[in-house]
């Protein structure tokens, strides 16, 4: 699968851009957190597209962002 670039994204409508980023993110997150992949992807899609692109290019950054998202998610879902 070819890397997603800013110019590729720029050609798509905004809604489609998130979809493209989401597909990439989901397939990277799924092997790490199969049960939470959809939620984590949803959280990361709230980030700026340009920042998501950087994450997709940097596995280490993405991994740390995923762990951050998991922590937030678990705290959010934890009963009080």
């Amino acid at each position: 699968q070819e890397p997603l670039t800013a110019s590729m994204l720029a050609k798509a409508p905004p809604q489609e851009q998130k979809q493209m980023l989401g597909e990439r993110l989901y397939h990277l997150i799924y092997p790490l957190h199969p049960s939470l992949a959809g939620k984590i992807t949803g959280m990361l899609l709230e980030i700026d597209n340009s920042e998501v692109l950087l994450l997709l290019e940097s596995p280490a950054s993405l991994r740390s962002k995923i762990e951050e998202a998991v922590t937030v998610l678990q705290a959010h879902q934890a009963p009080e």
Binding site: K18, H27, L45, H76
Partner: peptide, 26 residues
């Protein structure tokens, strides 16, 4: 205490058009 948005975050499903926060029912 209000019923906080327990459904956050919206969930992404591959192949399904992403609607972002609109995925969450009001």
């Amino acid at each position: 205490s209000n019923g906080s948005s327990i459904s956050w975050p919206p969930e992404f499903h591959p192949g399904v058009p992403w609607k972002g926060l609109q995925n969450i029912d009001p």
